[in-house]
Every structure is written in C-alpha cells, then in structure tokens.
Design a protein around this nucleic acid. Structure first.
Lengths: 182, 182
DNA sequence: GTCTATAAAGAGATAGAC
DNA sequence: GTCTATCTCTTTATAGAC
C-alpha cells in the first residue's frame, strides 16, 4: 500500500503499472497478486483510508473546540494538518477516485458524503448561532471551504511552504475574516 | 482536440486511448496520426490553450475594473466565468498537466507562472493601496485564492450549481469579506 | 486524408513449481 | 510467499495502399 500510494501520487493511478509497484517493494509483479486481488483494490483501500482518516481526525478536533467560531477554526486547521500528514495518500484519493469502477466508487462517495455532512454541521452551527454570515447558502460555504482545503493538499511542498499548522491558521483567518483591510 | 478534451476530462489522460479519440471523430486511430505527432501533443496543446485563455481573459477583466478592490473582484469573477466556459479543457489542464514529459511541462509551467504573476500584481496593488490586509504574505494570498478558484473548476456541474457569474460573485464576497457575521 | 495491416512493447492477471 | 513462464489483451505508433 505504501508503495502504491507513493507511485500513484507521483505518476497517477493509470500511469502506474503493477510491475513498478512490485519493483518498489523488491518482488516480482506476480507476487503482488498473493496480497491483492487487483490493482483497483489498492486504489479503493487508499480512498477509503483517506476519507476515514480525515473524518475521524476532524470530528475529534471539532468536538474538543468550544463555540461555533472555534469549531470552524479547528475544522480548517485540522483538515490541513491531517491531510498534509499523509499527503500522498490524500492526494491520490482526491485526484484518482474517479478511476474506480461504479460499485467501489459509490462506496467511496458515500464516505465523502459522510465527511461533507460533518463539515455542514459545523458550518450550520455557525450560521444558526449567528457567528457566521447567513446571507450565503450553507452548501456554498461548504463548497468554498472544501475547494480551498482540498486543492491545498495538491500543491503543498513541505520544503517550500509554511508548515501545516501555520498554514491552517492562515487559511482559517482568511476564511473567517476575509482579505479586506479593516 | 475537442474529442481529446472531452475524453481526457472524463476519463483522464493516461486512461484514454488514441483509438477512443479517433472513434469519437469517426475515423480509425491510424488516421489520427496524420493530424497529430503524438498523444502527448494533444495534452500539450490543451494545457497551453487553457493557460493562454485564462490569462488573456483575466488580464482584460482586471484592466477594465477601477480601483484595487474592484480589480480583485473582477479577477475572481472572471477566473470562474472563463474557466467554466471551457470547463473540460481547463479541467484537463489542471489535472493532467503533470503527465507531460519534462520539456513540454516546463513550457506549460512557464505559462502558469505568467498567470500567477498577473494574480500577484492584482493582490499586491490591493495590499500597497491598503485595500487588502497586509498582515498576510502576498504569496499566501495567491495560493489561497488560486486553490479556491482552481478546485471550483473541478466539481462544478452547470445543471446542479450556481451559474458561473453568480458563483464568481459569491466567491469574491467571501474572499474579500470573510464568513464571520458582522 | 483515410484506410488496412502490422510492428513492438507493455498492460493486468493467472498457473503451477518451489 | 515468491518465483518463472505465460495468457490475453491493449497500447502507441508506423508502413504503405488507395
């Protein structure tokens, strides 16, 4: 799985051969099939692991935060930190999920929906408590925030950019306060 | 090119065969090679076209806007509108650029840098004129904004979501004013 | 400009020995 | 659990006729 994550994240799922995965472990490609059923199994496991991880991490972070604004801030910070901790895996899930065939794709999309519901609940609590603006539909808030957070996982390079914790703080600050000088 | 864009955007570059592209036009795959040098040529042309288009569109929109805040707003709106006008092409460029071999990739990255410079100039003008907050590094502002805008191109479905113009307005509002209730 | 035919290589996956 | 050998299919790309 580690080898697959590493290769899928660098070259893409379709462009990675089972032979390359096997070579990275140091075995022949036939030996790989003792451990897995198919190449797609690897991608499926990567996607489910990614979505279970982010949901569980963010759920914990939100729960231990006090107040709607702090919950939103914790969500942003934790999403960034959690995804950058296993960046290659989450990057693969985000970019290659669509390569799954219909049935596994549906399972993975159900996990994604489940995480989106968690995000929605945090944003909705912010809106009903009048901490967040209510002139914008909750679905749009979620799409805005997840666009920002998920694309971040794709370009971030630990050697070139802010460490995840600091980046999460900046993103939360801009998301909540905007960019206009006050 | 249209056929390639359509297939690359739906299935991904590596997962699309030249035979499928030819079939979509209604010719045999060998005939395709009368028009193109290689499959990679198609991707290269898609990427350059995408980046030239967005830069030229946004440059015009920014130029015809008055004041730093209106320029930023025009940038956001135009980026969303322009990319969703040829969504499949821009989606392919964003997701599949990395499949290019080193030399074409470098050319495409130069175009991307050029567009990022345009974005930087707009944000910098906002900061030096004290219209935008100055407590956040300009590079971070650009990364934040482009993460948001580019990921939007990936999930937007015309039938399910706000029309591009309205979505651009909402994104600009949240980007500039934030999400806190005031 | 499109066709048939083919080359040359690589893909995912399996069989069966050890 | 890993190996060699192989099956079957598909890939990108080219040759040469029309």
């Amino acid at each position: 799985l580690d080898a697959a994550v590493s290769l899928f994240s660098r070259k893409g799922y379709a462009a990675t051969s089972t032979r390359e995965i096997a070579a990275l472990i140091g075995i022949r490609k036939a030996s790989l099939y003792y451990h897995i059923g198919s190449k797609e199994d690897l991608l499926f496991q990567i996607c489910t692991s990614s979505l279970n991880q982010i949901r569980s991490d963010v759920a914990a972070a939100v729960q231990s935060a006090n107040g709607p604004l702090e919950k939103a801030r914790a969500l942003v910070r934790c999403h960034v930190e959690s995804m950058l901790r296993d960046q290659a895996e989450h990057l693969t899930a985000l970019l290659e999920m669509r390569a799954l065939s219909p049935e596994p794709l549906e399972q993975v999309m159900a996990l994604r929906d489940s995480y989106e519901n968690l995000v929605d609940s945090v944003l909705q609590e912010g809106q009903t408590s009048a901490a967040l603006r209510t002139d914008i539909d909750g679905n749009l808030l979620r799409l805005y925030l997840l666009s920002l957070l998920n694309r971040t996982v794709i370009w971030h390079r630990p050697a070139r950019h802010l460490p995840p914790g600091e980046l999460g703080e900046v993103w939360a600050s801009i998301f909540l306060s905007g960019t206009i000088q006050r």
